[in-house]
């Protein structure tokens, strides 16, 4: 019972404090996983991949997935209801003074600070995903345990090459640039299996 209450409460907080859409919930999910031990950072990355490849807004998909991982079907309902409630409550409060709110200097001011903060938190979370993706964790632990070895051995070169290729395909190469992320996720899954990542 306690775990359900805590799950609901944590997602209410995420709904209240994540600003800027689905990806903005990522740093909060990392924090939650670390704090509670309910799931690992690698699991968050996997959930993000599934959430990007399935219908529905990323934020809700992630909430549902985390909720399911922690508390089964009931957990998924509680997490996704929790994450939408603060926004819906504010919608009801704010529509009464819609124009005033949008044109208020101080609301604008708050967002002047909130937008870079949101990007910064996503960046920090992204770096954590990068760490578990591009570095050999077992070796990293051995090194910090006193074992010495080459720094270059730490890096998973297969992952670096795939990342470079994906960057070119998603950003620079015209024919694939506009494709949906689900295409690149599927491609990476196939490459992951073919070259046993």
């Amino acid at each position: 019972m306690m775990v359900y209450l805590k799950l609901f409460w944590e997602f209410l907080k995420i709904g209240m404090f994540s600003v800027g859409g689905g990806m903005a919930t990522l740093p909060f999910l990392y924090d939650l996983g670390e704090k509670t031990g309910w799931f690992s950072s690698a699991q968050v990355a996997d959930m993000l991949a599934v959430s990007e490849s399935t219908p529905g807004p990323i934020g809700i998909n992630m909430a549902t997935y985390v909720g399911y991982t922690v508390g089964g079907p009931l957990g998924s309902v509680l997490a996704s209801v929790g994450i939408i409630l603060p926004g819906i409550a504010l919608v009801l409060i704010i529509t009464a003074m819609l124009e005033k709110f949008r044109n208020n200097r101080y609301v604008e001011g708050a967002f002047y600070g909130l937008r870079p903060a949101s990007v910064a938190l996503i960046t920090a979370a992204g770096l954590l995903v990068a760490k578990i993706t591009f570095l050999d964790e077992a070796l990293l632990e051995a090194y910090s345990g006193g074992v010495s070895g080459g720094l270059l051995d730490l890096i998973s070169w297969k992952a670096v090459i795939l990342a470079a290729a994906l960057l070119v395909l998603t950003r620079w190469w015209g024919p694939t640039k506009k494709l949906h992320p689900v295409f690149f996720i599927a491609l990476s899954a196939v490459i992951g299996i073919a070259f046993s990542f």
């Binding site: 990355a45 591009f134 994906l166 996720i185 299996i193």
Partner: peptide, 10 residues
């Protein structure tokens, strides 16, 4: 493999 893609998407 997908995790590499997630990094690029982020």
């Amino acid at each position: 493999g997908i995790r590499v893609c997630v990094c690029v998407l982020i």
